[in-house]
């Protein structure tokens, strides 16, 4: 190899410039802003820990928003992943039309982020909407979806679970790569389907479970479109997720310093959970060829 050691860096130039300008500087900048009072008109004024103290001592909206966000993430993500894995497991069989089903289940993931789907959700969960019409025709009491705090959060949650397709496709690819002879060996030893699933399949696909868990968690913490369009954070702020609160503080009230402080709290929560996942993964994620296992 005679070429310069720096040639590769040349190809990376756009990335490095972008990294510095659009990620690193804003990252540091938002940390700085979180210690200031900045309303876009006057220069940022240093206020020390004031924003953070206010958040954790007197801001009841923040407390509500934080707890709603945690509830949302910790219910939605496991539900979505369990469902995606369940469907992938069913699909991972010599079935006809497997591609048809896979495509059909993937369609919601393609459209899910669209505002049009959030609009659709407003209509189907309306008091006389599709869901209640179906419930009534089955002889079940119609549900007040948007009027009740728990139900309202559930509709937002369901919107995300509905987009289980991309997680499912990843699970399916992992399931298909599991060595079939392991199952045959287990069957000879008298293991049931369920036992093989729990003790062979799950351990072998832990890397993919881990990957899906992190990605889904990071995204769920940043959910915006659903609550913004479907419930506007209501009723009683029961769907007022932190990204909504940050948006309101920053772009409606133009309180950039305070909004940055909320963003940093959200960031630290996501970071901490990601680190916990990475740290704990040494104990539960299995990598083929790893001597420890």
């Amino acid at each position: 190899m005679t070429r310069s050691r720096f040639l590769g860096l040349g190809y990376l130039a756009p990335y490095i410039v972008g990294l510095v300008i659009f990620t690193m500087i804003p990252f540091v900048g938002s940390f700085y802003l979180s210690f200031t009072d900045y309303n876009l008109m006057d220069a940022p004024r240093w206020t020390g820990l004031k924003n953070y103290i206010e958040l954790f001592t007197s801001d009841r909206t923040f407390r509500k928003s934080l707890s709603v966000t945690l509830i949302y993430v910790f219910t939605t993500v496991p539900l979505k992943l369990a469902f995606a894995l369940f469907i992938a497991y069913i699909l991972n069989y010599k079935l006809r039309f497997i591609n048809v089903f896979r495509t059909a289940f993937y369609v919601p993931s393609i459209l899910g982020g669209s505002i049009a789907i959030a609009v659709l959700w407003r209509y189907i969960f309306a008091s006389e909407g599709l869901v209640n019409m179906v419930l009534v025709s089955l002889g079940i009491e119609p549900v007040n979806w948007f009027g009740d705090p728990t139900n309202a959060l559930l509709t937002i949650s369901l919107l995300r679970c509905w987009q289980f397709g991309s997680a499912m496709v990843i699970f399916l690819a992992a399931l298909q790569s599991v060595d079939k002879s392991l199952y045959e060996a287990a069957e000879i030893d008298g293991a049931s389907k369920f036992t093989s699933f729990v003790f062979i399949t799950i351990p072998l696909i832990t890397p993919v479970i881990f990957f899906n868990l992190i990605m889904q968690m990071v995204q769920a913490f940043q959910e915006f479109n659903g609550p913004y369009i479907i419930t506007q954070g209501g009723p009683l702020k029961s769907t007022y997720l932190l990204p909504l609160y940050i948006y309101d503080e920053a772009f409606r009230r133009f309180d950039m310093g305070y909004a940055s402080a909320i963003a940093w709290v959200l960031f630290i929560i996501i970071m901490a959970l990601t680190l916990v996942a990475f740290w704990s993964s040494k104990k539960w994620v299995y990598y083929a060829g790893d001597k420890r296992s």
Partner: peptide
Amino acid sequence: LLPNVVTRIPQYLL
């Protein structure tokens, strides 16, 4: 893995 939410405000100012 970086949540966009943390860089959004300074990006807007930029």
